[in-house]
């Protein structure tokens, strides 16, 4: 199998390398792919949408429809992970472990046992418990708000510099995942519950699609933000820029929440009462 695989891969390699022979040279500004459509974007992005970051302009406006389905892809990944992995709520864990904080004694309470209230005396811990590492906890605690702030900057500044909804959303989600890694999963689900993340994720995609529908209702084509100019009280070009901002925020929300949602389900194999 290995040999056959190797030979066929090698053969395919030769064929594909042969296929590159008609390509234009790397970095050639005159190659057909750099001439036809892309030049229009570079030359007209500013006058069409007043967004200097051409990538953002194409992403959210010229090819905004692709991007809407891109958020749909990531949304369906979130819902697919949930659908495949999530264990039902009544599937209670076999045993729950508590720690008495003052003495450090751990209690293992079997199914059906009476659980102590979480308080200053007792705290619930994971079955495979790793003692707290002060450095990690404090560092991540300090880092998380800054990462989140930076995420918001990346979303908001997508018009003028590299960035946008996806990047900002991923950074924001990563901040919360960092919190989950350095603390416990339960603490995180307590702050952002699964239901909330799932619903907000759908709402994020809805913001995108809803902006498109608003354009439709305002008399333009789907996702034609210039139709919103009357609604927003600005000229059509600025309306496009604002429309891009709106959908970027929707994307950011959806991506943040789906990151968290996927993390919850993957890290705990769908059980969500304990995880990484």
């Amino acid at each position: 199998m290995k040999l056959i695989g190797m030979i066929s891969i090698f053969w395919l390699f030769i064929v594909l390398v042969y296929g590159t022979s008609d390509f234009s040279a790397w970095g050639d500004p005159e190659s057909p792919c750099n001439l036809h459509v892309s030049n229009y974007y570079i030359e007209h992005a500013m006058s069409d949408t007043s967004v200097p970051n051409i990538v953002t302009a194409i992403l959210a406006d010229y090819r905004g429809f692709d991007t809407m389905f891109e958020t749909a892809v990531i949304f369906s990944a979130g819902i697919a992970c949930f659908f495949l992995l999530r264990r039902p709520k009544y599937d209670a864990p076999e045993a729950v472990v508590f720690r008495h904080i003052q003495t450090g004694i751990t209690l293992r309470i079997e199914k059906g046992g009476r659980l102590p209230k979480e308080s200053d005396e007792f705290e619930r811990i994971d079955t495979q418990w790793v003692p707290y590492d002060l450095v990690i906890q404090v560092t991540s605690r300090i880092l998380v708000p800054f990462i989140q702030l930076f995420a918001l900057y990346v979303v908001a500044h997508g018009h003028h510099s590299p960035g946008g909804g996806f990047q900002g959303g991923v950074i924001f989600g990563a901040a919360i995942i960092l919190f989950a890694v350095s603390n416990t999963l339960r603490k995180t689900t307590h702050r952002v519950s699964e239901k909330r993340s799932a619903v907000l994720c759908a709402i994020g995609v809805l913001i995108y699609a809803g902006t498109g529908v608003c354009c439709l209702l305002a008399g333009g084509n789907f996702l034609d933000y210039s139709a919103l100019s009357g609604l927003l009280g600005v000229d059509p070009v600025t309306a496009r820029s604002h429309g891009i901002m709106m959908v970027e925020m929707g994307v950011g929300l959806a991506v943040t929440m789906v990151m968290i949602w996927i993390y919850y389900n993957l890290s705990s194999a769908g059980k969500q009462h304990e995880g990484l």
Partner: peptide
């Protein structure tokens, strides 16, 4: 070649 990132 000799071009910069696509931010105008």
């Amino acid at each position: 070649k000799d071009a910069t990132i696509p931010i105008l």
